[in-house]
Amino acid sequence: MSVSPVVFVPRGEDAVLGCSFTHPYQQHYSGKIAVKWLAREARAPPFFSCSVNNDSMEGRVGCSDSELKYSLEGDPRRGELSLLFRKVHLGDNGTYFCRVELEGAWQNIQKKTQLYVTVKPHILSLSVIEASSGPDGAPRRLQCEAEGHPLPTVTWLPASTSLMGEQVQTSQAGPYRLASSVPYLQDDVFTCRAESRLGAAEQTFPDHNTLKITLTVGGLIVLLLLLSIGFFCYMRNRARVDSPPVYGNADVVENHRLQDSDVELQLVYSTVSVTESTSSQHGRFHSCRGQQEEPAAALKPQKPLRFDGVAEAFSVARHLATSPPRHLASSPPCHHLTLKL
């Protein structure tokens, strides 16, 4: 029997553990061939087993299911016992045993091989942690956790300050992980570098991308605030422009049109002027409907009207302009009324 001493394969790829056997009377052997693969220990129960009859070389071997994690890579009837691992991970790393068992007086054979899953160094995390009382007395530390196989070495690269050897604390956080930390003060800039024979990886704290994202978000917030203020000012100015003018004197201009009925209100101009005298107040009211003014003598009331105040005079004047009595409705379109208060 021959096996591959060590098989190196990157994490996530397929691996083949090579194994083959021969015996002097293989062509005359018609019994069963049992293939077994064991992990970690030589006497451990097999995690994969398969058997075929050696009475014929025709037909397919039922030990090569492509949907399983493990399957045979070859035909045991031809002495091929290699095992295929699909998408290996770090948990698959270790020692394996290839074993073949034959019926009768033929001897059983077993040999050891090694699967070595490689992982390039990479930084898992780089963050500030609250530290317990340590030899340097630093309340906060910057911790870097790195992973790789073989296990990488971690080196700190400070931007400005210098580090003493005793300030760096490194420990193994798992079979393939290292955790290293250094004292951290506000505004310090450090680079954590993990390196092995397979390559290197590094990360800087604080991350420049994080700073860019923070500035971008702050700029967007300011921009939205300015847009909101501008929109508010625009709507307020528009409301002032769209609102009808309010006159300081008694001049009122109205324009109404009813679209849903046969009645149409035409443009009405109303003017009331008040003059004061020693004995009484006189109000002159002028009303025009859609036409220019007529002479003041177009309509004169037979009898002066008296009111208790200017507000009541205005109210009556507006009512006469919009809804004149029947004897005024047939009058010329422009009316001049003199109101005596």
Score class of each variant (00 low, 15 high):
Q203S: 10
A146V: 15
E147T: 00
V246L: 13
K212T: 04
S180Y: 01
I229H: 07
N209H: 07
R240L: 11
L258H: 03
L267N: 11
T210M: 04
L225E: 08
Q167C: 02
Y234H: 15
N209L: 10
G134P: 00
A138Q: 03
A250R: 08
P245N: 04
L163N: 05
A179L: 08
S261Q: 07
V189Q: 14
D187W: 03
L227N: 12
M164D: 13
I229L: 15
A131W: 02
L225S: 11
A200P: 01
S261R: 08
C192A: 11
D260W: 08
E254C: 11
Y176K: 02
G174F: 01
W156T: 08
A250I: 05
P158H: 07
D242G: 00
G134F: 00
A239W: 04
W156E: 06
G219W: 04
Q186T: 13
G137E: 11
R197D: 12
V252R: 13
H256G: 03
S180L: 02
V168G: 02
Y234S: 12
R140T: 11
S180C: 08
L225W: 10
R238G: 01
N255L: 12
E195Q: 14
F231L: 15
V263E: 13
A201Q: 04
R236K: 14
P183Y: 04
I229M: 09
Q169Y: 05
V168W: 02
D251Y: 14
D136W: 03
V154A: 03
V154N: 01
L215E: 15
K212Q: 10
D260A: 10
I129D: 00
P245C: 01
Y176S: 03
L227P: 02
M235D: 06
